[in-house]
């Protein structure tokens, strides 16, 4: 009898996580008792319509927003959202973010935007190395206004990975891009994910993108409605939408 395969401990683990926003018309439940484990080397795509709770879940995973209830553990240790210093340290060292609208600092060049994250990391890679990973070496000295949308998003990816994070969180990274540019960005993401072996979570409206994931989570009304595993993740170049 073969020895049972030992499951590695999850990098991030959520138990009973909920998030409620008060509003004049009554409380809005953005997340309802979510249980989730994310493992090293995993690329997870979260799908769901607007208001399904994807972004809120991503923000909680990245320490950008505190859950109203439940527990979030990073490498087995509970994240204390009440302690601003510790949650900042978590973001500073372990999490890389990629936003739909890039959020680059317009007064800094591509290299300087990446250096902005490297400056506060413990053992970052060189800004140029991160830019090389996203294929932007020739554009390193350009300001955001001189870059196309796809290039700006790749700078944002370089900025997210320069600190060698344990978790890379991408919020609709192709949402503002056309299909061809979007595919380039997804290729860059997949390449980096494989090279660095980090947990990568990507949220999107676009169901086709799920093809590149190891796991696809469908969110609905603040809960994980369905979970699919994918043993042969597709090359983003082959994804069409």
């Amino acid at each position: 009898m073969a020895a049972p395969e030992e499951t590695p401990p999850p990098v991030l683990s959520l138990r009973g996580v909920g998030k409620t926003y008060p509003s004049p018309g009554g409380d809005v439940h953005a997340l309802r008792a979510v249980d989730l484990d994310l493992f090293a080397g995993e690329l997870v795509v979260m799908l769901g319509p607007s208001g399904s709770g994807k972004s809120t879940l991503l923000h909680v995973l990245g320490g950008l927003d505190a859950p109203s209830r439940g527990i979030v553990r990073f490498r087995g240790r509970e994240l204390s959202f009440a302690d601003a210093g510790r949650i900042t340290a978590y973001r500073r060292t372990q999490v890389g973010f990629v936003f739909q609208f890039y959020h680059l600092i317009p007064s800094l060049t591509a290299r300087e935007n990446v250096a902005l994250a490297a400056d506060v990391a413990k053992a970052p890679m060189a800004a140029d190395e991160a830019l090389a990973l996203v294929g932007l070496t020739p554009r390193a000295d350009h300001f955001p206004a001189q870059l196309s949308g796809g290039e700006q998003q790749r700078v944002a990816i370089a900025r997210a990975i320069v600190k060698r994070p344990a978790v890379l969180l991408c919020d609709e990274p192709t949402g503002a891009l056309d299909a061809a540019t979007g595919r380039t960005v997804l290729q860059a993401l997949q390449r980096i994910h494989r090279q660095l072996g980090i947990v990568t979570v990507l949220i999107t409206h676009n169901a086709a993108i799920g093809a590149m994931a190891d796991r696809v989570l469908h969110l609905h009304d603040g809960a994980i409605a369905r979970e699919l595993r994918n043993t042969t993740p597709a090359d983003p170049a082959t994804i069409g939408w």
């Binding site: 950008l64 900042t88 973001r91 900025r159």
Partner: peptide
């Protein structure tokens, strides 16, 4: 406001 939020997301401390 946006730039401040990004700096926070990147892990900059409030003091910084």
């Amino acid at each position: 406001r946006g730039a401040i939020a990004v700096l926070k997301a990147l892990g900059y401390r409030d003091g910084e």
